[in-house]
């Protein structure tokens, strides 16, 4: 068996008396799209945050390409090549699209203005942002320097996805990437996910949209009550099976299907 790109063992996270993750295991293999499904409150978001560095698990280990890592902040995750689109999108509404895309990894001007005065290279950043948005088919954005708050919900989501796709080098995590999108934008995001997969970068996709999950995913991680219930192959199970597993209406046959 090949080595997982990103894996976790026995992750546990408690918030006061609430146990969000309960000895959860996780594996993501090279080049695959892994969907994570589960009911509300099952701990999907906490799992994602632990893997991206936004929260630090109380117990358990995380491995990137076999090497154990410890993420104390989202920046640690980003440095390890893990890029995340959070459900909240994590954008600053008053700042421009470009500013948001480059937040925390701004490009400085070449020469003394950049070295000494740390001046940003606005043009390079804007060109890059424009390129990424047009790759995503987000053509309804009129001005790259307009504040994010003037965008529609779908456009904001598109910008967030474009940001992750542009910078993710090892793993891209998408938390409900199509939840706020229109039909056309969702389709672009799904295409983009496949594009990214073709580039060989594995993707973790959290979604409630079963048709999208079954269309894209190579494997489906079913999350229930803070842990991995089972991993299923979408070709062998139906959508209603998956829903039955995640809601607890049906128990998986083996200890680990697929």
């Amino acid at each position: 068996m090949t080595e997982p790109v990103l894996s976790a063992k026995n992750l546990t996270k408690r918030y006061g008396k609430v146990t969000a993750l309960d000895n959860c295991d996780f594996e993501l293999y090279p080049g695959e799209i892994l969907a994570v499904i589960g009911d509300n409150g099952a701990g999907k978001s906490t799992l994602i945050k632990a893997l991206s560095g936004a929260v630090t698990a109380d117990e358990g280990e995380i491995y990137v390409e076999g090497k154990q890592v410890r993420f104390a902040s989202p920046n640690d995750g980003r440095e390890a090549g893990i890029e995340t689109v959070y459900q909240t999108l994590a954008m600053s509404p008053a700042l421009s699209i470009t500013d948001n895309m480059f937040m925390g990894r701004e490009i400085r001007k070449k020469g003394w203005m950049g070295k000494l005065l740390r001046q940003l290279d606005r043009k390079a950043m804007e060109d890059f942002a424009r390129q990424k948005l047009s790759d995503l088919g987000l053509m309804t954005i009129q001005n790259i320097s307009q504040p994010v708050e003037t965008l529609s919900g779908g456009q904001r989501q598109g910008v967030a996805v474009a940001r992750a796709a542009a910078f993710g080098s090892k793993v891209i995590i998408l938390d409900e990437p199509t939840a706020a999108l229109g039909v056309k934008e969702s389709r672009r995001v799904l295409e983009l996910i496949q594009d990214v997969k073709k580039r060989g970068i594995p993707i973790i996709l959290i979604s409630h949209n079963m048709p999208h999950v079954f269309e894209l995913a190579d494997r489906i991680h079913v999350h229930r009550l803070g842990r991995r219930l089972c991993v299923i192959d979408p070709k062998e199970y139906s959508m209603s099976d998956a829903v039955a597993f995640m809601t607890g209406a049906k128990e998986p046959d083996g200890p680990r299907a697929a």
């Binding site: 600053s92 937040m103 925390g104």
Partner: peptide, 15 residues
């Protein structure tokens, strides 16, 4: 500006 706008979002996006 990002911290003043939304500190949590800023932290998640790497500030």
């Amino acid at each position: 500006y990002a911290v003043g706008d939304d500190a949590e979002a800023a932290a998640l996006s790497g500030v």
